[in-house]
């Protein structure tokens, strides 16, 4: 029941049905919550809640299944794209997505993600890039920026000994099997709106059987970065976006036809 006067007021925004009423375990300001919210909103708008199976990963995203109000399965570290492949192949008319962080996907799960993309699996992957392993306390991830201090690169990531960050969207976009690969950011209202639009596009791609879609979402990790949420947003804008440019890295020609 509406708790407002429908005659005099318009509902501009309310919590989506695809989220449960649980309070998250995320730290204050963590943009995991924004990503969860956007996915839930899009599934509501597309009326897909009852036809969706999510695949949770390992990391802070491990408890995603508590917050989404639809069927969920939980993958071993990095293996979400393989599990998603498995269930999508036996339930091809269901919407299947994975929700993974950068440690999970770009490090231990690099084999699984690359091959899921190369096979053109008709799944959607949400890749949260916050430049560190959040759940275990902020260790260096494959996405940690050069010079960035983490608990396992205390003097700053030294590319001479610790290598260079991986730009996942650019890398996966090179694969013929990938249909829709974009990078968005969850830092400001405009970028969040664009992220939501990309999420919608990705699910439309899957609905049409056009193959693999991946959305990289630049995110903040205030606790492990040792900053307030607001200054974390600034850090993302100043440091991350220049290294990880936002944009569409792969858009299959058929996707241009999609209208929603």
């Amino acid at each position: 029941m509406a708790d407002y006067d429908v005659e005099t007021e318009t509902l501009v925004y309310e919590r989506p049905d695809s989220l449960t009423d649980l309070s998250t375990h995320f730290c204050p300001g963590c943009t995991h919550g924004v990503a969860h919210r956007l996915i839930a909103e899009v599934l509501d708008e597309m009326n897909l809640r009852e036809k969706t199976i999510g695949v949770a990963s390992v990391g802070c995203s491990v408890f995603s299944y508590n917050y989404f109000d639809f069927d969920f399965i939980q993958a071993p570290h990095g293996r979400a794209p393989a599990m998603a492949t498995g269930i999508k192949r036996v339930l091809p008319d269901r919407t299947v997505f994975t929700y993974q962080g950068d440690g999970d996907m770009a490090s231990i799960g690099m084999g699984e993600i690359v091959h899921a993309a190369a096979r053109g699996e008709n799944i959607t992957v949400f890749f949260l890039n916050n430049t560190n392993y959040g759940m275990t306390g902020g260790q260096m991830a494959p996405t940690t920026l050069p010079g960035q201090k983490t608990s396992s690169s205390p003097n700053g990531r030294d590319v001479e000994s610790q290598g260079y960050p991986i730009r996942v969207a650019e890398m996966l976009a090179k694969l013929d099997g990938a249909s829709y690969v974009v990078r968005r950011s969850l830092d400001d209202p405009k970028n969040i709106r664009m992220a939501k639009k990309a999420i919608r596009t990705a699910f439309e791609v899957q609905q049409r059987g056009l193959g693999f879609s991946m959305i990289e979402l630049l995110s903040i990790c205030p606790t492990n970065w040792g900053m307030t949420p607001v200054s974390s947003i600034q850090w993302l804008q100043e440091k991350m976006i220049p290294y990880y440019p936002l944009g569409d890295y792969k858009v299959h020609p058929a996707i241009a036809e999609i209208k929603f």
């Binding site: 695949v55 293996r79 393989a82 599990m83 498995g86 269930i87 192949r89 036996v90 084999g111 699984e112």
Partner: peptide
């Protein structure tokens, strides 16, 4: 029926894991 030659045995068993969640014979 579904057949996938996985990228590794790690991939294969996790595909089994995912598909088994559907309750089908895998």
């Amino acid at each position: 029926r579904a057949f996938v030659q996985a990228e590794s045995e790690l991939g294969a068993i996790n595909m089994v894991y995912g598909a088994a969640c559907s309750g089908q014979r895998v």
